[in-house]
Amino acid sequence: MRILKTRQALFILFFVTLFSGKSFAQNATVTIEQDEKFMQLLNEKRRINSSITVNDHYKIQVFYGDNKEARKTLAIFKREFPDMDTTIVFESPTYKVWAGSYDNRIAAERMLEAIKQKYPYALLIKPNK
């Protein structure tokens, strides 16, 4: 019985090694074609992202929530404060509306008090990447 199992094992091993040399993996060449406009957009995004500095300035967060409400809040805020720089920032899972860019905390707090009259949940932040 033991000899029979050994022969079976050797027989299986023989065929496995015999056919393993004959098996081939798939060989393929992948060619990627992309539109030139894609690279232009990608370069533009890189240029814009490198010009955004958020590390060294105070900002006022006016809103956080879903995308639709953030866009609506941004449009209303721009009408009420047209001279202030505003942007929407996505930090998973919420969208945030940030306003202003202040070098010192005192100037940011002064503007925060004016904004809190219309947006009571506004808060002062100093973002970092």
Rank of each mutant, 00 (worst) to 15 (best):
N104A: 02
V62T: 08
S20D: 11
Q26G: 07
I76T: 13
E113S: 12
A107N: 06
I12W: 10
I76S: 05
N27L: 07
G21Q: 04
V62S: 04
A122L: 08
L123D: 14
R105N: 03
I76N: 13
N55H: 06
A25G: 13
L41I: 11
I106R: 10
D83A: 12
P82W: 12
A99P: 14
Y58Q: 01
N27A: 13
R110W: 06
F77S: 08
K129V: 07
K68T: 10
K78T: 09
A99E: 04
F19C: 04
K37R: 13
I88R: 01
N55E: 09
I76A: 05
L10W: 03
T87S: 12
T6D: 15
K45A: 14
M111H: 14
G21S: 12
K59R: 14
S51N: 03
I88K: 00
E36Q: 11
K116C: 01
D85S: 10
R2F: 14
L42M: 09
D83L: 13
N67E: 12
A107Q: 08
K68L: 09
Y64K: 06
P120M: 00
F63D: 00
E80Y: 01
K59I: 10
F81M: 11
K37L: 08
L112T: 05
N43I: 02
L74F: 12
I76M: 06
R79N: 11
I106Q: 14
Y119T: 04
G65T: 01
S50L: 13
T29M: 07
N128W: 09
K129E: 05
R79S: 10
V54S: 08
L112S: 05
P120L: 00
Q34E: 05
S51F: 04
E109W: 01
N128S: 13
S92I: 09
E91C: 01
I12G: 06
K37W: 10
I88P: 05
V16N: 06
F11A: 11
E36Y: 12
S23F: 03
M84K: 02
N27C: 05
V54P: 02
Q40L: 12
R71T: 08
F90W: 03
P82D: 04
V89Q: 05
T73D: 00
Q40G: 02
V16D: 03
M39K: 13
T87M: 06
L112G: 02
R79G: 07
K5S: 13
M84T: 14
I52H: 02
G21R: 01
E69H: 07
V89M: 10
N104I: 13
